[in-house]
Design a protein around this nucleic acid. Structure first.
Lengths: 104, 104
DNA sequence: TGATTATATAATTATTTACTTATATAATAA
DNA sequence: TTATTATATAAGTAAATAATTATATAATCA
């Protein structure tokens, strides 16, 4: 696929409020699905499906820790993403308000 | 609307191959609709509708020159866009191959 | 082991989006 | 003024997408 088409696909991924919030949050720290469910106030399958899209595109990686699967950004090999991520507003405030793990 | 939501809307706009090509091209020089029709090999109404979305979002401005309406980027007041635009690959080669105005 | 918690996946539904076709507006040229 | 060229807009269609509902997998804990 042409470079511009690949870029368009990345922007399409980021062009959804929920996914962009996930990416902006993972910029600050790794998170599990249940935290994202609370943060975005939506269903667990909805989050899982957004995460999968981000994972399929290689934007996000996972690491299981017991019951939980923690997701984090995977941008080391993606310089074009750095520029974009720098534009995202901080999510710190919201993240501090999350109920501490164990989730529910 | 929240800042992140606005950003998501911008990314959604850029997340379409045709619109991203338009933006990447306008980065190099102003262009009229008929040039974009040739460049993207699609219909005139299709281009006009993409242009309108970009214009509604304030990403693009127009200036009529006789029969033609020339479109150009309007990014001066949008620092967050600069970073993104820098990631777009050059369209020079393609632009040089366009048939010179008057269009058709 | 069976129950619970965390997550994934599949199937469906509803919404959004891109594109086409048809038509309207606006400027210019004959 | 009529024809032509450039562009916009409206209406309809097809495809893509997000979200929901239902179910499956996997780890942990009693």
């Amino acid at each position: 696929m042409a470079e511009l088409e690949k870029l368009a696909d990345i922007f399409k991924l980021l062009g959804d409020k929920n996914r962009l919030t996930i990416v902006a949050s993972l910029k600050e720290r790794e998170m599990c699905v249940c935290e994202l469910v609370e943060l975005l106030d939506t269903s667990q399958p909805n989050i899982s499906q957004h995460i999968r899209k981000l994972k399929d595109a290689g934007l996000v990686k996972e690491s299981r820790k017991g019951q939980w699967i923690y997701y984090s950004l995977n941008t080391d090999d993606k310089p074009y993403l750095q520029a974009v991520l720098n534009e995202l507003p901080s999510q710190q405030e919201k993240l501090l308000q999350l109920t501490p793990i164990s989730c529910s």
